[in-house]
Write a protein that binds this DNA or RNA. Structure first.
Length: 910
RNA sequence: GGGCGUAUAGCUCAGUGGUAGAGCACUUCGUUGACAUCGAAGGGGUCGGGAGUUCAACUCUCUCUACGCCCACCA
């Protein structure tokens, strides 16, 4: 015996992973095989494995191992993302600890430092993915900033620019004042925050008055500080209160700037006073209103610098005391907001908010409390400032059209289908994508400017110079591209594009993309847009979106809440196979997964169960299968289990094709435990130890074959234990000549044997019935009994004879005969149209037996009655499907007969 | 404001137009050499409320309620 009593995952996992990787088995040479391709969402180089990665990568590994076992040329592309902002932040933080800052270095020095960090500390996650058992093509590991990807990014940028799909534009962007870079709409997270709504008076200029006689106009704002850059007041064109002052001017109380009251639909008469201050340089709506009011973008005032400190506007009207103040209170120091409020209050221009306190007294406050949806940067964590700058934009609207069409026409199948609407909804309302970032780590934008601001986009400086002409002074754009710009090229950039490589031809489009729905817009949508634009074909034929792994209580895992579950801890505790199986079993389409350690433990137990079943086989001379096809078998129990394998394999293949990971996992789980371990291995025990050598030989051959099929079918889910068993089960035969990871998926070449199936079903039913009877009559389970059959035909008696040893050993029925039972107490079982009378040696608890039979009878009668009722309904017989009527009739006949037998048994008890 | 999802056994979740399943938890019994990380036998659900379609609804339609998510917006 070579297998230990208990399965210890830690003892084998690292060994097998290294074996697979060093032998190159993650991507065996299969030039003539049909390709199958998926690309891994490149994890951040700064990242470490979290539970979401564990889910995402387990699902991908299941698919790729399944396809590899089916003989495909299965390629799972892997690599890392340079993660511009995240990585730069990590390195800057490290420098900060040494009292250094990025700007102490030149750009080149800093970038070099980041590369050095990457070499030394980056890529933790690649080792962790190995612990999970992921069979990626590490031999060709990529990086979004490696040479090939750089080339792809360069070409994409230049081509899009030349096609007018990338352009430079001055407009408001989401500016992160902490990181001092622009970010895209997707990187902004809007959160409700408790804030204030201030009401102020803006005096009307030139002695103008409202119809009601007031010489000021009331405005309300949540951002008082931006009034230093106000350029208009907007009122609704149909608002009677203000019609007479449209076109008149107001005097901004702090800057003294004069500007007009304009009519614009944006102003909501219901909100505040109905008049709104317009600050085109610091608010997205105001920007649009300003443009409509005829203010040129270049003339819009900008009163904040890159860190959101107040700076002078181009008209020089911001008072000196404001310059350098932060936009709002920070670190206990008042900002521009607080100063504005203070000054206006002193000027008597603040309109207090009046509310009643709990005693019903009126109380004045500076402002009205209000919940404000506030934009935050997803990395920097500070409030985003809309800021007027020059940035590079991708014309996403144009690129989105073919991506919409691809899904609409089925070139891309989204699974689950409900996500299609989200895809369309986003794509159809897509905004220009801001792709420039004011960082140093990333793909530097290949654009050069001359002294007049003319732009030259080219592959290098020499080419740009050529465009600009000899002697023209050029300077390169300082900005880098959004990280997602490069990862959008992953499905073809990693395959050699822009070169026309064999890999590219063979593996594009990819067959499937698996990703969390949280990166649907960030990554998936952009891959679709870029893929179709540059490859003239979709990046993948199917897109599978899975949910989030949540904490046990259903909340989102987050470091701040401290409820993060570490997948590596679970691997240490239960083994990678158990964690993987958990992920698969819990992954039903369209639902998040709640973490449940008990369930992971359950799958560890499943692994142990399989391990022990293999030990049983080993000690009984059952070894590796000699054939791929099912062995020839004459015994019903063997023919039955072969049929069960065929059905299991069909169900498993279907589930995997349908991307129903839960169904796939459950299929193999229940076959292994319920069918193979609980019944088959029990039923064959007497055969293995019996006198009939040929029966024993046949059974050993079949059992070995079935165990092999289980090991192969389970391998995508539990790669480590199965590889271990694959080899250890063959030791007696001198070992396997190939590894399980590249073995062949089951091909039983066997029909489903309905005769054997019904025979074993009967056997299982009879044994189960005997067992439950004993429990209910308080008979010790081990007690051997004799059975006398009533109403049994010769076919039944032959069946009984065939299964005598199993009935004896598993059912504890030492004899079964057609002879009438002797007088005296007995238990009676009704199974499949025959009654089995079991004489009892001692006194029988007649009442218990009556109760048992009565309960059975009631159940059967109830079903029969319901069927009768249905069949008695003329509408049912006429309108229902004939099969349904037929089935109801057959069921009724069965139930009626069973009820009669049970009644007869009861009658015999007196 | 728009969109999506979820409500089934104590818990976490599958599921099908024809009288409901799994894992865990629970109860009782059990060490006959694969396995106590186990085996056997059980208990437990009017499938969120209401209406409709149908011979038949947990399953389809509508509606209500509760919870969750996404997008947009609220000066």
């Amino acid at each position: 015996m070579t297998l230990d009593k208990n399965f210890d995952p830690a003892a084998i996992e690292a060994r097998w992973y290294e074996h697979w990787e060093t032998k190159g088995l993650f991507r065996p040479e299969r030039k003539d095989a049909e390709p199958y391709t998926i690309v891994n969402p490149p994890p951040n180089v700064t990242g470490s494995l979290h539970i979401g990665h564990a889910l995402d990568n387990t699902l991908q590994d299941i698919i790729i191992r399944h396809e590899r076992l089916k003989g495909k040329d299965a390629l799972w592309v892997v690599g890392m993302d340079h993660a511009g902002i995240a990585t730069q932040m990590v390195v800057e933080r490290q420098m900060g600890e040494l009292q250094q800052k990025r700007t102490d270095l030149t750009r080149e020095e800093f970038v070099e430092k980041v590369w050095k960090w990457k070499e030394e500390s980056g890529g933790t996650i690649t080792k962790q993915l190995r612990r999970l058992g992921c069979s990626m093509d590490w031999a060709n590991e990529r990086f979004t900033m490696d040479e090939g990807m750089n080339e792809a990014v360069l070409k994409v940028f230049i081509d899009l620019y030349n096609d007018g799909l990338i352009y430079r534009d001055k407009r408001l962007v989401n500016w992160d004042p902490a990181l001092k870079t622009a970010i895209s709409d997707l990187e902004v997270e809007t959160t409700d925050v408790k804030g204030s709504f201030w009401h102020f008076k803006y005096p009307l200029a030139d002695g103008a008055k409202l119809d009601d006689g007031r010489d000021y106009i009331e405005i309300a704002t949540t951002r008082p500080e931006t009034m230093l850059a106000d350029m208009a007041i907007a009122v609704h064109p149909s608002d009677e209160r203000y019609k007479s002052v449209i076109g008149k001017e107001v005097l901004q109380p702090i800057t003294g700037r004069r500007f007009k009251i304009v009519a614009d639909e944006h102003a909501d008469p219901e909100l505040g006073s109905g008049a709104v201050k317009i600050t085109p340089g610091h608010d997205f709506n105001d920007f649009e209103v300003g443009k409509r009011a005829g203010i040129a973008t270049g003339d819009m005032f900008n009163m904040l610098d890159g860190e959101a400190n107040v700076c002078q506007t181009s008209d020089g009207l911001v008072p000196e005391e404001y310059i350098g103040l932060h936009r709002f209170k920070r670190g206990g120091i008042d900002g521009a907001r607080e100063l504005v409020i203070k000054q206006l209050k002193e000027l008597g221009l603040l309109i207090p908010h009046v509310s009643k306190n709990k005693d019903g007294e009126e109380v004045e406050h500076d402002a009205e409390p209000r919940t404000i949806a506030t934009p935050f940067g997803d990395r920097g964590g500070v409030v985003i400032e809309p800021w007027l700058t020059d940035q590079w934009y991708v014309d996403a609207e144009t690129l989105a059209q073919p991506a919409i069409k691809a899904v609409r026409e089925g070139d891309i199948e989204i699974v689950p289908k409900t996500w299609e609407k989200t895809w369309f909804n986003w794509m159809e309302n897509i905004q220009p994508w801001c792709v420039s970032r004011q960082l140093w780590w990333g793909h530097r934008i290949p654009a050069w400017f001359d002294d007049d601001g003319n732009i030259f986009v080219a592959e290098d400086e020499a080419a740009a110079q050529k465009q600009a002409g000899e002697g023209v002074n050029l300077s390169r754009d300082e900005d880098v591209l959004d990280t997602w710009f490069s990862s959008a090229l992953w499905p073809f950039g990693t395959l050699g594009w822009p070169e026309e490589t064999d890999d590219l031809k063979r593996h594009y489009p990819n067959d499937l993309l698996i990703s969390g729905f949280d990166i649907l817009f960030f990554w998936d949508a952009r891959m679709a847009m870029q893929g179709i634009q540059f490859m003239k074909d979709v990046p993948w034929k199917r897109l599978y979106l899975h949910g989030l792994v949540r904490a046990e209580d259903g909340s989102k895992m987050s470091k701040s809440k401290g409820n993060v579950v570490d997948p590596l801890g679970l691997i240490d505790q239960y083994g990678a196979d158990a964690l993987r199986f958990f992920m698969a079993a819990m992954e039903s389409q369209g639902r998040d997964i709640k973490m449940d350690d008990k369930r992971v433990e359950g799958y560890r137990n499943f692994a142990t169960k399989l391990w022990n079943a293999s030990r049983f086989c080993e000690v009984n001379g059952i070894g590796a299968s000699k054939t791929l096809a099912a062995p020839e078998a004459a015994l019903p129990v063997n023919r039955w289990i072969i049929s069960e394998v065929v059905e299991t394999q069909q169900a498993l293949d279907k589930a995997l094709t349908d991307l129903r990971f839960d169904a796939a996992a459950n299929t193999i789980y229940h076959f292994t435990w319920d069918r193979f371990c609980d019944w088959y291995l029990e039923l064959i025990k007497p055969l293995l130890q019996g006198d009939d050598a040929s029966a024993a030989d046949e059974t050993r051959a079949v059992a070995g074959w079935v165990l092999d099929q289980i090991i192969v079918m389970l391998h995508p889910f539990m790669p480590f234990i199965t590889e271990e068993l694959w080899h250890s089960m063959a030791q007696e035969d001198g070992g396997r000549n190939y590894d399980l990871i590249v073995a062949k998926w089951p091909a039983p070449k066997a029909e489903i044997d309905t005769v054997a199936k019904s025979e074993i079903d009967w056997l299982i039913k009879l044994v189960s019935e005997v067992r439950s009877t004993k429990v209910e009559l308080n008979i010790a389970p081990g007690t051997k009994m004799a059975a006398h059959i009533r109403d049994g035909d010769s076919a039944l008696m032959e069946k009984v004879a065939r299964h005598n040893p199993a009935l004896d050993r598993v059912g504890r029925l030492e004899s079964i005969s057609a002879d009438p039972a002797p007088e005296g107490p007995s238990a009676q079982l009704v199974v499949d149209g025959a009654t089995y009378v079991l004489p009892l040696a001692g006194a029988i608890d007649i009442d218990a037996e009556k109760a048992r039979l009565t309960k059975s009878l009631e159940g059967v009668s109830k079903e029969a009655k319901s069927l009768e009722g249905r069949l008695g309904n003329a509408n049912f017989v006429e309108k229902a499907k004939p099969e349904a009527v037929e089935k109801a009739r057959a069921d009724l006949a069965d139930k009626t007969a069973e009820a009669e037998r049970l009644q007869a048994a009861l009658d015999r008890l007196g």
